[in-house]
Design a binder for these strands. Sequence first.
DNA 1: ATTAGCACTCATTAATGATGAGTGCTAATA
DNA 2: TATTAGCACTCATCATTAATGAGTGCTAAT
Lengths: 346, 346
Amino acid sequence: MKSDDRKFAILYSIIRDYIRTAEPVGSRTIEKNYNLGISSATIRNEMADLEDMGLLVQPHASSGRIPSDKAYRMYVNNFMKISDVESYVIENVRTLYDKYVGQLNKAIEATAEILTKLTNLTALVMTPHITQMDIKDIRLIHIEGERALLVIITKQGIVKNAEIRLNSKTDKKQLEKITVFLNMCVDGINNDFEAENFSIAMEALNSQEQRILAEVVAAIKNIYQQDADTKVYASGLTEIFKYPEFKDMEKARKVLETLHKQDMISYLLTEAMDSGINIKIGNENTFEELNDCSVVTATYKLNGRPIGSIGIVGPTRMDYDYCVSVIKAMTKTLDKHLSDTLGGKD
Amino acid sequence: MKSDDRKFAILYSIIRDYIRTAEPVGSRTIEKNYNLGISSATIRNEMADLEDMGLLVQPHASSGRIPSDKAYRMYVNNFMKISDVESYVIENVRTLYDKYVGQLNKAIEATAEILTKLTNLTALVMTPHITQMDIKDIRLIHIEGERALLVIITKQGIVKNAEIRLNSKTDKKQLEKITVFLNMCVDGINNDFEAENFSIAMEALNSQEQRILAEVVAAIKNIYQQDADTKVYASGLTEIFKYPEFKDMEKARKVLETLHKQDMISYLLTEAMDSGINIKIGNENTFEELNDCSVVTATYKLNGRPIGSIGIVGPTRMDYDYCVSVIKAMTKTLDKHLSDTLGGKD
DNA sequence: ATTAGCACTCATTAATGATGAGTGCTAATA
DNA sequence: TATTAGCACTCATCATTAATGAGTGCTAAT
């Protein structure tokens, strides 16, 4: 079907042009700037067809066309070309990461800033989830009175910590005893400490210690299973002002307000955790407030397992080729950094 | 001088009116709505005087007047009335704080959100500085290889922690030995560990231990003296869109961009750390980008010592009476919460 | 010293018309 | 039969103009 090829060549041209200019694209523009060897009149006819197919939209009767969300989806699935990011850029990122060895959260934050700098878009990142990881070591540090610091170290070398409050005073010795006990059965955490070791060793503790243990276990579940210590960051929230489609204050405000919510960021980054690179275009987004935006997310890994994700948010006419290339390169670089600095085999 | 009293009564009325409406105030408005017993013509004459004194500004020749920054300064210094915040509000805040016992950072974040909710303004907060505090306890926890978690507990019960990387591998035993040693001379931290104890005990360590110790001390200085673990949060960044003076996109963008910078928040909150309540009006702000805003900050305390600060940012025509009342009430409530949950006498 | 009266200023809004980019349709063409 | 040239038509955008009205400064009367 020669005719179809031509249609999509026109569609492709229109999309590329609109991504670049943010202006509705007319038939003469295509004729002049893209050498398709056909006249504007023919292009007009094809454009009318493409509109019937739901791939183009006309803002008003006598204007050029803009691509629909469906068109972007087709573009992303069939026409998008991913390329390598220049190596000196990656080199700079590596150098930056080296400055944050031992400050995982800072490195993740820096990742957001780099994404923004490279794409001129809002970037979202989340710190690693530990839910899927195996615990290597649990420590309890007595602060004073009934306060203690709980530290969880995973086999992958990720460290999480949180202060916990017990119902009664305790001391260093008591916590040490419980710590030893806890580490004897860390394997039981995923199945509610039902492991054999648990009930056996339980008898070695007196009743007060058992009570404290129960509270500690609750805290561990909170931080480990709910992953209460996972944090999200956004950078470049004001980048949106650079784009003419958001020159309407009300539109910009709506998106901005949405992206300021922690749980929204969390949702966007968690939604597509297991699908590698994920792209949500315009109305594909669950939340109506983001129907004029596209969200590109990707997971980063440790020892081959996804442990967190990063993403960018921009207008639906974002440069998908470039953005996806960048986000791929960044996750790859981050993966490398994590395996270099955290190590720990599965 | 009866004449001066009248002038300032007019000025006061104009400020109150402008704070409420954001519209330039004309002489007839004052005559009708504020019973000053004088005609609009007389008010006009006085207004011309007030303009000569630099207290009023006329946006254009035939418009009403708006207060100058100088007028707000006079208002804040002389006319402002601080009142109590309704007790049920405080009660709600207390209840909320109770949910975050043991999660100091969360409580501070919640404070920002409450400030935003109460004032409809952007709120800024910072977590406690520990620079002025005395260290009670230092712990080193071995993670794996050359990685360790440093935990600092102050006498005031504040806990800070950071991962550190040593230049060579270590183990649990070695770190325990160093920990014992460190705690013997925690008092020396403020004067570079020059204390007598330090050099004496130093001899008890072998050369590798001494090397590790030096690295740990450097890390402690970083987290303790530079207070590398102090965090800042902003909430309600999009509140600015509610105010007509920022309906100009460019203006709003500038302020928004400025308030998104961590170090800007840090600067604003640190600038006036020792002066209790601090109010910066319009061009009194160090940064040109905030010349259309006012910033109200206040310090919160532990055992009578300021350890951090909170603040709000809004248009210069903010309701100073109410805002200052709210921020006073909030610091007081936060102070109480901290002393209740952290305790620890000086 | 105060106020009524009036001419004047200027932002805001609505109405009007010109411009131009871009279309759809028709008839001519290869 | 597919393509293209030609043309009437649509509609957003922009500049111009005029009307409106809030508010002032100044002068003369009280």
